[in-house]
Design a binder for these strands. Structure first.
Lengths: 333, 333
DNA sequence: AGCAATTTTGCAACCGGTTGCAAAACGAAT
DNA sequence: ATTCGTTTTGCAACCGGTTGCAAAATTGCT
């Protein structure tokens, strides 16, 4: 069925090496043989087998793209950017859906079996140890949307979640709110922990402001709605920083159902600025995470590490900013 | 760096074949050598190289997952189900993001270079010829969410879009609407064409009902909102069948902004029943497409075709049903 | 113990490419 | 025409596995 190197070589009347070299960037072939080979190749419809060549070159151009988040709409944007970005650089994403796994062993083994050139872990909930398991297995890896540490063992690209928490707090403070709250994602998600920490830190210097914290069970609409509904049974805060946008939308739904108005009765600020946040019927005030930059940098970094595997682990954090929309009352004055 | 077959063979004091056979299902190895090999393998942390073995077995266990839809939230559900379903069967999805391409040549070449065992084209907008290009290149292929034809050249799994159009029309008729409309997705999408056809067919026997048709430029919120906004400048229909859920949500946003009430002033029925349609602040009446069944069948079919490549092209269509929620007034009586 | 039938094993060739090396071809200069 | 330096070419070994085949080892029987 498949046409191979030797078929082309035979037809062109040259050696297999000659054929190989015409398809190898920067190899030594005369114009004459190259022409013969290319003619034979097109006639036969030959294209070199990437799998076979990887065996000797040691490069598959496969990148493992590992994620456990297939329910948050922002991840469709993430996958879109990753797959396009990888393709543009001649790399192929091998997608791994972690579902409920927390042990990296299976993914590590699988991606090793396929000799991926590198791995990108795209998750804001997995601990640093997850990505480290790939590094320990000798694979270049970058953790996108991961937690920043001062002495990283693995490349991390993302945002400063602590700073975002602080930024959210400041936005609420600036609007004169006196009772504020953080409605986080799952309590064990690193991003939630850091956002909570920054939020509390910024408010520590404002003892006149009442702060409370609670957690949703997931970064999801239902979880956000359920947690907000629970809070509305008591005396809710005037303004909330929600763990992310989809949680915010869930919370908004609960608020609306309770007959309260946004932003007059309750204000919300989210985080991510996913496409949906711009939808006019949602119009969510949120902190924008620069997705394209994060993903571009992640790919750059994994490529750089493939070329120099001993490259020192690096952290790249991108600045976020508040996007003013309709779920937080305007700044006074 | 990597530990190979020969390392294990050497350590276990057996031949390379022996090692190979211990890791090959159903090969002939005595319990004694198997034990020796397994011991050596775990000591060395060996796991067989799938790429290398594919060279002789002719199976990579890679499946090309090709899609051009990275903006419609339902496709996150689609990718989740596909990746999990493939993984559960020991297959690995190699994701191809088509973006703006309509020519299959590049994808065909790329997936051939990686010797994928099969290809799944997941798209409701690509023409049948796209999937056929993979078959012509000798790869088992199934087109998920594709267009049904009476003499298919390629496996198709999905829904009967014509029947869905009819079903939507009947839902509107049953509610006594006299002015109805179809607000479709892109006019060149096969799914849109078929849904429009079914819709018109069902209404052909109801000359007392006024029908109109228009198209959004994409299956997206913005496109749905823009098209509905345009329609609201004139005299809109009483009830709309929207090309899909995300279009419906865009339309709802425009209706809401115009100060009209749903479903009293205008009714909407969508198609897909994506997770978001259930969100209480959206609460969209829609036609449910059984995603899990479609995707399960697609995988089954591609696997079956890998095993028997001469398998006759087959069409598997799954029934859809109306999910009653809040955007269409209840049935009379 | 002896023999045939069966199972297990290693050899060697192969999958589809790449690449170091030496020989062959080429080109320029004398 | 000869020589020398450079480029191009093919040979053969290799990447990490698999597998047909024949030899070796084991098993079951008498």
């Amino acid at each position: 069925m498949a046409v191979t190197l030797r078929d082309v070589a035979h037809r062109a009347g040259v050696s297999r090496s000659a054929v190989s070299r015409t398809f190898t960037e920067g190899a030594s072939v005369s114009a004459k043989t190259r022409a013969k080979v290319e003619k034979a190749a097109t006639e036969l419809g030959y294209s070199p087998n990437a799998i076979a060549s990887s065996l000797t070159t040691g490069r598959t151009k496969l990148i493992g793209l590992v994620s456990n988040n297939f329910h948050n709409p922002i991840f469709l944007e993430v996958f879109d950017l990753f797959t396009r970005g990888l393709q543009d650089r001649g790399l192929r994403p091998l997608l791994v859906n972690l579902s409920h796994e927390t042990d990296p062993a299976n993914s590590v083994r699988m991606l090793r079996q396929y000799s991926v050139d590198g791995v990108i872990v795209a998750s804001s909930t997995l601990p640093p140890s997850f990505a480290e398991a790939f590094r320990d297995a000798g694979m270049p890896v970058v953790h996108s949307f991961g937690r920043y540490t001062t002495s990283p063992h693995v490349h991390v690209v993302g945002i400063d979640n602590i700073a975002c928490g602080r930024m959210a707090a400041e936005a609420l403070i600036a609007r004169g709110h006196r009772r504020v709250a953080f409605l986080g994602g799952p309590e064990n998600a690193t991003s939630t922990q850091d956002r909570a920490r920054g939020f509390l830190e910024a408010l520590a210097s404002h003892p006149e402001i009442e702060v409370s914290i609670s957690y949703a069970t997931a970064y999801s609409f239902d979880a956000g709605r359920a947690e907000m509904a629970r809070l509305l049974e008591g005396t809710p805060a005037e303004a909330f920083f929600c763990g992310d946008d989809v949680l915010s939308i869930g919370a908004l739904s609960a608020i609306q159902d309770a007959g309260l108005r946004v932003p007059d009765d309750i204000g919300i600020i989210g985080l991510n600025d996913m496409a949906m946040a711009r939808w006019q019927n949602i119009d969510l005030t949120t902190i924008r995470q620069p997705l394209a930059e994060i993903i571009g940098a992640s790919i750059d970094l994994v490529v750089a590490t493939i070329e120099r595997p001993d490259r020192h682990p690096e952290t790249r954090l991108f600045p976020c900013r508040v996007i003013e929309r309709g779920t937080l009352r305007p700044l006074p004055g």
